[in-house]
């Protein structure tokens, strides 16, 4: 295949499919073993300085926020990130943990541009930003999930998003048309928050599934946090609901309100007040630090975090959904 154009962005994570296969053979337990552990243990055991990490879905929607906060608490450094996010990646950028970004979107959605991203990139603290479209990131996970080194797509063609990516344009060997090839993205660590899982990691999600299916299958190590741990009999009763089977999973963390201040569909609404607090406080470095001190460094774990938020407020977030 003739390569006709190449993006100049760094290929931050190489799509080494053979090593991935070997990893999956050697390191992923095929037996049903109990993987329940705390956030502290999961992050300490499975995340290392310099790892390439991806989170799913979005910083305000079914996002592994209790894991994201624990990662900040443990101060894992030099991280390379699949940059598709809101609050979770904002926290990591604000805490100075990120070195390189494959970026599609980091922002505060309805509240606009992320000041943390601006400070990190404009100051040069994050030295490498490689551009991708949202579909491109998801399809890169899909390629890894398929076990192939790249996937042909028709996004990014003709744009600077392509020019500053690590993708390539080739002529299709069947039709002669130009197509964009995306390298598979194999994560060192993936993190997904789900509605429920059993002790082995069989996991169910309600509502839209974002890119959970693909990211779970593209991760060398996968940490699942779940609103509740359910018996395996429940999983076996409705096996069609298992979107992430146990053998993909390395850790299962029970995290009620694990997406807070984000939402969890059918369970609780997002905490608009606390989201706005971050939007305001993240505008300046000093107040950003105050937020991190109050909500992350100042509490030992997720249980203490929930205590700080307060039962009443959490109950209210559930009530809003129940009333619908």
């Amino acid at each position: 295949m003739e390569v006709v154009e190449s993006g100049i962005g760094e290929l931050i994570q190489t799509p080494d499919i053979n090593s991935f296969r070997e990893w999956n053979r050697q390191n992923k337990p095929k037996a049903l073993v109990d993987k329940v552990m705390t956030e502290q243990e999961a992050i300490a055991r499975f995340v290392h300085d310099g790892d390439y990490i991806g989170t799913e879905l979005y910083g305000t929607v079914r996002c592994p926020m209790s894991l994201a906060r624990e990662l900040v608490r443990q101060g894992k450094k030099g991280l390379r990130i699949a940059g598709q996010g809101v609050l979770e990646l904002d926290l990591w950028l604000a805490a100075g943990l990120v070195e390189k970004l494959d970026i599609t979107y980091i922002g505060l959605e309805v509240y606009g541009i992320s000041p943390s991203l601006r400070r990190a990139v404009e100051s040069g603290q994050v030295g490498t930003t490689v551009e991708w479209s949202n579909a491109a990131i998801a399809w890169r996970f899909k390629a890894a999930a398929m076990g192939v080194p790249f996937i042909p797509v028709r996004s990014m063609l003709g744009s600077d998003t392509f020019n500053y990516s690590a993708a390539k344009v080739v002529r299709c060997p069947f039709t002669g048309q130009k197509v964009c090839l995306l390298p598979a993205l194999i994560l060192d660590v993936g993190m997904i928050h789900v509605h429920r899982a059993d002790r082995y990691g069989n996991a169910q999600i309600e509502g839209i599934s974002g890119f959970a299916f693909e990211l779970a299958r593209a991760s060398k190590r996968l940490i699942i946090s779940a609103e509740e741990i359910i018996p395996t009999e429940e999983i076996r009763r409705y096996p069609d609901r298992t979107i992430i089977p146990y053998y993909l999973v390395d850790a299962v963390v029970e995290a009620p309100f694990g997406s807070h201040p984000g939402e969890m569909v059918y369970l609780y609404e997002r905490d608009e007040e606390l989201i706005k607090e971050w939007v305001e406080m993240s505008k300046e470095s000093e107040t950003t630090q105050e937020y991190l001190d109050r909500y992350i460094y100042g509490v030992k774990n997720h249980a203490e975090y929930l205590k700080l938020i307060g039962e009443e407020r959490l109950a209210y977030l559930k009530e809003i959904v129940a009333r619908r």
Binding site: T104, Y105, E122, W132, S133, N134, A136, M156
Partner: peptide, 24 residues
Amino acid sequence: TVIGDHDHPKVRLPGSGGANDVGS
């Protein structure tokens, strides 16, 4: 994506998100 030069931006904007895909 950016105002100014990509590698030394004056303002770093959120990025493509789904925009490139929608426009493509």
